[in-house]
Amino acid sequence: MDLRIFTEPQQGADYDTLLTVAKATEDLGFDAFFRSDHYLKMGDTDGLPGPTDAWITLAGLARETRRIRLGTLMTAGTFRLPGVLAIQVAQVDRMSGGRIEFGLGAGWFEEEHTAYGIPFPKEKIARLEEQLAVITGLWQTPVGKTFDYDGTFYQLKDSPALPKPAQAKIPVLIGGLGAKRTPELAARYADEFNIPFASVADSGQQIGRVRAAAEAAGRGADDLVYSNALVVCVGKDDAEVARRAAAIGREVDELKANGLAGSPAEVVDRIGQYAEQGATRFYLQVLDLSDLDHLELISSQVRTQVG
């Protein structure tokens, strides 16, 4: 069972903070450090000092960590042209020695687009499909060959399809709760399917949809990794859980209902409930990035029980 640390820097974190958390992630034995890809805060926070760019951050972390996997949940398909993004991700993969995993989503937060002058197209899922085709096509084109693509939204002609990633295949993550098109895209392109902030029952239903879509596409359902992203709030006792919940502006009962919260034993049990639905990987959404003791507790009393 892989436990990965997942951060939301748009809520207020500079690069040095993210570096500190990434190094703790590595030192404490977690599998990976992931971050969101957003340019605007959400909810009741000032968001200071302001956003950091996901792929610039990961490029820095690629040179300052040695073991952990690095990636995004999810890179916004609206932020970058697919050809440019393929270059960026391949370069960061080479900078990391082959430790990048690539989550790509359609983009959904209209306000951040308005705030920074980024177009917010209506046909986001159709664009995402073409982006996946372009990016994976560029990476898969043999050295010395060229890549062409003639889509509705993107056209490439005689691309040298360089640089190549360090990995023979960068793992591609697709996620969401869509009932039809999302599972179909995952069946065609994904190595991992991620379910964001969903109940045990809803996770099981979505995993079932993706497994069926994979088989319909001629793949084995077990060819994909199935994962959950869930907020985490663990404490040695009730008082510590309450303190950590208050620090992120959440209620304990709500966190227990919708995330991984409570004592280490409660969280281990909750992970087991998701595992029974087919999940083998968990992205722990850590919202208080100053609380490194929280990571140490999760590592010593949760990770060791489910690893």
Rank of each mutant, 00 (worst) to 15 (best):
E112Y: 13
L295M: 03
Y283L: 13
Q91T: 15
R211P: 02
S300A: 14
E266W: 07
M95I: 13
V306K: 14
Y283C: 03
K236F: 02
R80G: 13
S159A: 14
P49V: 03
D27W: 00
F120V: 08
V210Q: 11
C233M: 02
G176I: 09
Y154F: 15
V302Y: 01
R211N: 01
S203W: 01
A86V: 01
T182G: 04
L297R: 05
P119A: 13
I135G: 03
Q301E: 15
I5L: 10
E123W: 05
T78R: 09
G249H: 00
A62C: 04
E254Q: 06
G218W: 03
F34H: 12
R209I: 00
G117S: 07
R127K: 12
I207W: 07
T182L: 06
K236W: 05
D150W: 00
I5P: 06
A242C: 07
T65C: 11
L260V: 08
R80I: 13
F197Q: 13
H38M: 05
I125P: 03
D237N: 14
I118W: 11
F79N: 10
F30Y: 04
W139S: 05
L287R: 14
R181I: 08
T78G: 00
F6V: 05
F193R: 07
G176F: 10
Q277M: 13
V225M: 08
G105M: 08
R250C: 02
Q167L: 01
E184P: 02
G144M: 07
S199G: 00
A217G: 07
R69W: 12
T78Y: 09
A229W: 05
D2I: 10
Q285W: 05
A168T: 06
M1R: 12
M42L: 13
T114N: 11
T152A: 12
I5T: 09
A198E: 12
I100N: 06
R4Q: 12
V89F: 01
P49N: 10
Y274K: 07
F153R: 00
T114W: 04
I5W: 02
A212M: 09
T152K: 15
A229Y: 06
L28I: 10
T45G: 07
A221R: 14
G137V: 09
F147K: 01
E192R: 14
P82L: 10
E26C: 00
V231N: 01
V21N: 14
T25M: 08
R188K: 15
V268I: 13
L3K: 11
I125L: 14
E26A: 00
L284P: 12
Q277V: 13
G117R: 04
A187E: 08
A245C: 11
K157P: 00
G144L: 06
P183H: 10
E101F: 07
G103L: 09
S263R: 09
A217C: 03
R219L: 03
